[in-house]
């Protein structure tokens, strides 16, 4: 049901010509994805998706739209429609083919579940003592990675400030 809604939103996005409606639909798409994450029990990811994808990104996209004084005109593509269609079909077929090698969803024998995951699940209560294993992994076991992520966000912020923010003083 949710996947049907997702697919419908995506098809609607492709067909729409109005940028404003397209931005609203991407927001909807994010909200649906967030619900999907909740169904998959990934509540932490769902939080982020709902707040960033559906909330802040939509506002930023609308802000960008309002900055564009002239709406970009729709131009006909130089090549025919067959080439993009072929590229999309080939990529899609390759991805579907790759999924045959993937372990079944939730398979405890999957390689991803065999490496450090058992240690986190069995020992984190004794070693870190937090009920939320996600937080234990992010903030304690993988503290370096999270520091790197914060540094990435910081750098992105600096980049936007340099490109857009500092113009006022000129």
């Amino acid at each position: 049901m949710l996947l049907t809604l997702l697919a419908t939103t995506a098809i609607g996005l492709v067909l729409l010509r109005s940028l404003f409606a397209a931005v609203m639909l991407t927001g909807m798409y994010s909200l649906l994805t967030a619900s999907l994450f909740v169904l998959l029990d990934a509540v932490d990811v769902a939080f982020t998706e709902a707040a960033v994808g559906a909330g802040i990104t939509t506002v930023l996209m609308l802000g960008t739209l309002s900055l564009l004084r002239v709406m970009p005109e729709h131009t006909e593509p130089r090549h025919g429609r067959l080439l993009p269609l072929a590229v999309v079909c080939l990529t899609g077929a390759a991805l579907v083919y790759a999924t045959f090698d993937m372990p079944r969803f939730g398979d405890p024998q999957a390689p991803a579940q065999q490496h450090v995951a058992p240690r986190y699940i069995e020992q984190s209560a004794a070693e870190v003592g937090l009920p939320n294993i996600v937080t234990s992994v992010l903030a304690s076991y993988r503290g370096y990675d999270t520091l790197g992520e914060v540094a990435v966000i910081f750098t992105a912020g600096i980049g936007v400030m340099l490109l857009l923010g500092a113009r006022r003083k000129e």
């Binding site: 914060v150 936007v160 923010g165």
Partner: peptide
């Protein structure tokens, strides 16, 4: 340790998001 670093993460993320908005909205 976790509470301290999570607070750092929250501060930076909130401030960056708000400054994104300031940058986009202020330009118009």
């Amino acid at each position: 340790g976790i509470i301290l670093i999570e607070f750092g993460v929250g501060t930076t993320v909130a401030a960056v998001m708000i400054s994104f908005f300031y940058a986009f909205a202020g330009r118009g």
